[in-house]
Structures are given as structure tokens and as C-alpha cells.
């Protein structure tokens, strides 16, 4: 028998033995959902144009949630990341604007279970957003930067019900910024003056409900299949903010499809695989 074959068999036996080294400790699984979607978007960016651009967008998003402590099913943390790409058209149909946006959010959630099958999550999050719009025909100012960071109030309601022998979960959630900062330059300042000459006076603003009203809402339907859980998601992302006497607006509605998984995270080779798991849906 060749040496390499012996080595492969040895490794296989080693892995089998390792796999049987269980521990009685409880383990918090990471519930993660990755979805891809498309929808409609309207954009108003007076730095580029006084007109509302309407078009479509594509969106890829990943959300994950995990209990801090597997023995405490009340406090969890979550991550959310998304990337949006879109294109909008001038009302006349003669010009188009390209758009991209990236966002990362970290949140803390308190889980309440007032009645059976119903779970309410309330908490807060911090997010940071970076994006831009490109209107190629604007010779000297074709690009507008979007940049903000917020502390948000978050809430989510989950309800689980049975339908045709499937345990279906419906979720509605909302994220509303409460306070943060945003980049909104004066309408007549050039990016040359802002970024080459470093004159960012009046470009960064404190934001709160007095000058920024926004929400991100979602309605998810998780449908389990044999080995996967399918997620159908309807999302509404609305932002309207004002600074330097200029009002910006974004309104996007998208429908996404994705998969939900409860993941076990391996850490090195010293951990023993636990026999008891808890995921954030429990």
C-alpha cells in the first residue's frame, strides 16, 4: 500500500475519533441568512440634479444573529451587511444615474416571548454606510458621495405557525436611526475644494430626527424544506435627510430570496463538539 493511502486512512480515522469527542456544554449557533433580491428605487440628489431619478436596484444581503451566552436566551448580537447596485433615469428618460451603496450594521437585541410561538426583539444598533451616485453627463461634478453613520432603534416581531406540516416563521422588523452623523456638502462646493484643499467645513453634520428621517423595514417568511430553510423577504429602505438647505431622498423596495442556516463555528482543534445547541430562533 502506498504511503499516501496510509496517510489518508490515518487522517480519516483521526477525524472520526475527533468527531466522537462530545461535550455536554450548550453551544450558541449562529443563525445566518443570505439573500439576493431586486426591486425599485427612487433617488433625489440635488448635488447632481434637482430631479428624482427612478429605476431598479439589485441587492445582496447577509444577516446573522447569535446569543452571547448559550445559557441566556434573552440577549443576542447581530450583524448585517448589504450591497446595493442600481440605476435610475431622469423623468425625461434622457439621462441615467448609476448608484451603489454598502452598509454594515452591528446590533444588540433583547428577546421577549410574551406568548407561545411569538418572539419580540427590541434593541439598538450602530451602522455605517458608504455609497455614491454617478451622473456621467455632469462634466465637472459627475459623482456624489453618500456617507453616514447612525445609532438606531431596532425592533422585530417573529411568529411561528404550522402550515401543511411545515413550521413557518414570519418576521417583521424595523430599524430607525436616532442619532449619528452624515456627509452632506454644500450644493455649490466642488469635490476639489472638499477633498484636495481639505475644506470640509459644513460637510459633516450631526443627524437626528430633526434632519434625518429614515427607516429600514423588512417582512420575512422562512419556509423550511428538507435540509434548507428558504427565506422570502420584502424590504423597504427609506431615507430622507436635509442639511445646508438641500434635501436628499432614497426610497427602495425590493423582494429577495435567500437561505437561512444555523451554523456551528469551529474554533481550532481543541474544541469538542457540544451535544446541545441553541439558535437565535429558540
Amino acid at each position: 500500500m502506498k504511503k499516501s493511502t496510509i496517510l489518508v486512512i490515518f487522517l480519516f480515522i483521526f477525524v472520526l475519533i475527533r468527531a466522537q469527542q462530545f461535550t455536554d456544554e450548550k453551544y450558541a449557533l449562529t443563525t445566518t441568512a443570505t439573500s439576493v433580491g431586486a426591486g425599485f428605487i427612487t433617488l433625489l440628489d440635488p448635488y447632481l440634479s434637482p430631479f428624482e431619478y427612478k429605476g431598479f436596484e439589485m441587492r445582496i444581503e447577509n444577516k446573522s444573529r447569535r446569543f452571547f451566552n448559550p445559557d441566556n436566551d434573552k440577549l443576542s448580537y447581530s450583524h448585517r451587511m448589504y450591497l446595493e447596485l442600481g440605476k435610475g433615469n431622469h423623468p425625461s428618460g434622457k439621462n441615467s444615474m448609476l448608484f451603489f451603496n454598502t452598509n454594515y450594521m452591528y446590533g444588540l437585541n433583547y428577546h421577549m416571548r410574551p406568548v407561545e410561538n411569538l418572539m419580540i426583539l427590541a434593541g439598538g444598533s450602530w451602522d455605517i454606510d458608504l455609497g455614491g451616485k454617478y451622473l456621467g453627463r455632469n462634466v465637472n461634478n459627475p459623482f456624489s458621495l453618500d456617507f453616514f453613520s447612525d445609532l438606531n432603534a431596532t425592533a422585530e416581531i417573529q411568529y411561528e405557525f404550522d402550515l401543511k406540516n411545515r413550521s413557518i416563521r414570519i418576521q417583521y422588523g424595523a430599524v430607525c436611526p436616532v442619532a449619528g452623523f452624515m456627509f452632506v456638502p454644500m450644493q455649490n462646493v466642488s469635490y476639489y475644494e472638499l477633498f484636495v484643499l481639505d475644506n470640509t467645513k459644513n460637510a459633516f453634520h450631526f443627524s437626528s430626527v430633526h434632519n434625518k428621517r429614515a427607516w429600514y423595514q423588512y417582512l420575512n417568511l422562512d419556509i423550511p424544506f428538507k435540509s434548507n430553510t428558504l427565506r422570502l423577504s420584502l424590504q423597504h429602505d427609506y431615507q430622507k435627510y436635509s442639511a445646508n438647505e438641500v434635501i436628499y431622498r432614497k426610497n427602495a423596495i425590493s423582494l429577495s430570496v435567500g437561505a437561512v442556516m444555523h451554523l456551528y463555528t469551529f474554533r481550532g482543534n481543541k474544541d469538542r463538539i457540544p451535544t446541545h445547541f441553541i439558535h437565535s430562533y429558540e
Partner: peptide
Amino acid sequence: GLPLSSELPNGWMVRFSAS
């Protein structure tokens, strides 16, 4: 004057000195 641009309702673009 450093120029910027804006648009008209019919989609025409205007460039003008702003700075």
C-alpha cells in the same frame, strides 16, 4: 470659476461657474 452642473425638466444639462 470652477464649474458645476445641473439639469432641466426636459433632461438638458447646464454647466455653470459655481466657485
